Amino acid sequence: MADSRNLRVLHAAEDFAAAVMLTSRSIDAARAPGLRGQLVRAAAAVPANIAEAAHLGTDPNFRRQLRLALASANESNSHLRILMRTGALEPVEGLRCMGKGAVVCRMLVRLIRAIDEREARGADNRME
């Protein structure tokens, strides 16, 4: 399986998580109780799941962990939208984080698709 240090998506996910953690300091917790902690946990789970995926050894396990990372990235972006709508987070800060999250989501989707295609080609070759 891939060396996690060489995965560009892991570096992008770490940048996203760091941006969210720094931004979370400015969240008005009184306007969205508990959501700041949920946001930070979801954002931190993204690079953690990618790093774990890189060491699982099989494509199905790798893909499963990448899907968990994608779900956490989407959860983080949902929390950011709610925080902006409630006025607990300034839109400029939320949108900056969401942009980084969107990059990570696109990278994860492409990586998952590549694994699916490689697996399909392998199945086709076995059938011939």
Rank of each mutant, 00 (worst) to 15 (best):
N74E: 11
A69C: 08
G57Y: 10
A45R: 12
V40T: 14
A71R: 13
S78C: 11
A48G: 12
N74H: 13
Q65R: 15
G57P: 06
V40E: 14
V46C: 07
Q65A: 15
G57C: 08
Q65K: 15
A53I: 03
N61Y: 06
D59A: 13
V40K: 03
L66F: 13
L70P: 00
R64S: 02
T58S: 15
A42S: 15
Q38S: 05
S78G: 10
V40F: 07
A53V: 08
A54D: 11
Q65G: 00
S72P: 03
A44H: 11
L66D: 01
H55T: 14
Q65T: 00
L56W: 05
A54Y: 06
Q65P: 00
L70M: 09
D59R: 14
V40Q: 11
P47Q: 09
L39T: 06
L66Y: 09
N74W: 02
Q65D: 02
A54F: 05
R41M: 04
P47N: 11
I50Q: 06
P33E: 08
S76A: 15
A54M: 07
I50M: 12
A51N: 09
A44P: 01
A42R: 07
F62Y: 15
A73G: 09
N77D: 14
D59G: 00
A48K: 04
P47T: 11
P47S: 08
E52N: 13
P47C: 12
R67P: 00
E52W: 12
Q65W: 06
A44G: 10
D59P: 11
A51E: 09
A71N: 10
Q38D: 06
T58Q: 11
A73K: 03
L66H: 07
S78T: 13
P33R: 14
I50K: 07
S72G: 03
I50A: 08
R64I: 00
A45F: 09
R64T: 02
N49R: 09
N77S: 05
A53T: 08
P60D: 03
R63N: 02
N49M: 08
P60T: 05
P33N: 05
G37S: 14
A42Y: 07
S76N: 06
G57N: 07
P33W: 04
G57K: 08
L39H: 06
A53P: 08
T58W: 00
A53D: 08
Q38G: 15
L68N: 13
L35V: 13
R64W: 10
I50P: 05
A43F: 09
Q38H: 11
P47E: 13
R63E: 12
P60L: 04
A48C: 14
A73Y: 04
V46T: 11
E75Q: 11
L56V: 12
A69H: 06
S78Y: 12
P33T: 11
P47Y: 14
G57E: 08
A44L: 15
A51M: 12
A71Y: 12
R67N: 01
N77V: 01
Q38K: 10
A53M: 07
A45V: 03
F62P: 01
A45P: 01
D59I: 04
S76E: 04
Q38P: 02
A48T: 15
P33Q: 11
A51F: 10
Q38F: 02
S78F: 12
S72T: 01
V40H: 04
R41G: 01
L35N: 01
L66K: 06
R63D: 05
S72C: 11
A73C: 15
A54E: 06
L56Q: 15
A69T: 05
P60A: 04
H55C: 09
A51V: 10
G37K: 08
L68P: 00
E75H: 05
